[in-house]
Amino acid sequence: MNVLSKKTIVITGASRGIGREIALAAAKRGANIVIAAKSAEPHPKLPGTIYTVAEEVEALGAKALPFQLDVRDHAQVFELMQKTADTFGGIDIIINNAGAISLTNVENTRPNLFDRMQSINARAVYLTAHAALPWLKKSGHAHILSLSPPLNMDPRWFKAHAPYTLSKYGMTMLSIGMAEEFREHGIAVNCLWPRTIIATAAIEFALMGKEAFRQCRTPAIMADAAMAILEQPTSFTGNALLDEQALEKVGITELEQYRYDSSYQGPLGADLFLDDCLWSH
């Protein structure tokens, strides 16, 4: 039996993309999946809602709880955790996948956009942990996993988009602090970031366009990397790993299977905050 079997996993931003892929990977391992996202109604350009992912999870034989959530609303977050515990008897794992991105500098970032990125990215890491903590303390396999990067203090990552960088580094810094704070309670806290750009709606609509997908990997690599971390004992804590590093821990080194376009054998695009990233302006 997989260590994640019967564990209850809350995933924010789980209606599509990486969040959906993580939900399905965990469902295949027998976990209870809470699909927490804003998308309750179909979007004309973006497939997937909390309900369609719940159906996919249940089709794999796992239990699902769809929950419409705005991670900025603390009352909704507390309600989410209480309903999760009432439904499944507890909470074992929190995955902070919901995100907001705008690669704009200080001059060109409106105050409301600045606040949105801080709230959906960094503040949500605090808020979900704070709200779930009473149940995480009782779990025998408690993990918090946030999709945020290793800290790279090169000024390059601040000049062009300091507001976004602040929000993502804030996720990682909170995670480092929580790893130490929660260590005595047996709660592992880690971060995960893609080595390459991933074929998601953010790349297609907010950043580079769908033509960039040929230089991407699929969300499956992040899902498999997340499973590699979540299957570790809770003593594995305080790490900010790239997906490749997480997979290497479980012996997965052949990564061609994750290439979005197998007919394209050119270089893949390195993601933000990595020294060899070529696509940040």
Rank of each mutant, 00 (worst) to 15 (best):
N96D: 11
K83S: 08
N105I: 10
S119R: 12
F78P: 00
G89S: 05
F114Q: 07
S102E: 14
A132T: 09
I120H: 02
A129D: 04
W157C: 02
S102F: 11
L127G: 01
L136S: 05
L166P: 00
T87P: 02
H130N: 14
F158P: 00
Q118E: 11
T104C: 13
T165A: 13
T84W: 03
V106R: 05
M153F: 15
N108C: 07
S148F: 06
S119P: 02
R110C: 04
G90K: 04
T109E: 11
P155D: 12
I144Q: 08
Q76W: 06
M153W: 12
A124V: 09
L133Q: 05
S146A: 15
I94W: 00
A98I: 02
Q76F: 08
A124T: 12
R110W: 04
D86I: 07
S119E: 14
K138Q: 15
T128K: 07
N105R: 12
D154N: 15
D154R: 12
P134K: 10
H130A: 13
A85F: 08
Q76E: 13
K168R: 14
A124F: 11
K138C: 04
R116Y: 14
I95A: 07
E79Y: 06
L147W: 04
T128W: 02
A129G: 09
P134G: 14
W135A: 04
S102M: 10
R116I: 08
F158W: 08
H141V: 08
H130I: 07
T84A: 06
L127R: 03
A162P: 02
H141N: 14
P155G: 11
D154E: 15
H161R: 09
D115I: 10
D154A: 14
G90T: 06
I95N: 00
S146E: 01
A131C: 09
I95F: 05
N97D: 11
G140I: 06
N96Q: 06
Y164N: 04
A131Y: 03
N112Q: 15
K168M: 04
N152Q: 10
A122Y: 00
F88G: 00
G89K: 05
P111R: 14
L151V: 15
L133A: 13
L113I: 15
P150H: 06
S146L: 10
D115Y: 04
D115K: 13
R123W: 03
L133D: 00
A131D: 03
E79F: 06
L147P: 00
P134C: 07
K168I: 04
P155S: 09
K159F: 02
S148P: 07
A142T: 05
D154P: 08
Y169L: 07
A129H: 06
A100I: 05
H143F: 07
P149L: 06
P163T: 04
H141Q: 12
K137M: 11
D154I: 08
I95D: 00
A160L: 10
I94P: 00
A85L: 13
H130L: 12
M81T: 05
G90N: 06
T128I: 13
G89P: 03
K83I: 08
A160T: 09
S167L: 05
K137F: 05
L127S: 13
D154G: 10
V106C: 09
Y164V: 01
I91V: 15
H161F: 15
I144V: 15
N112C: 07
F158D: 00
A85Q: 07
V106I: 15
T109G: 10
G89L: 05
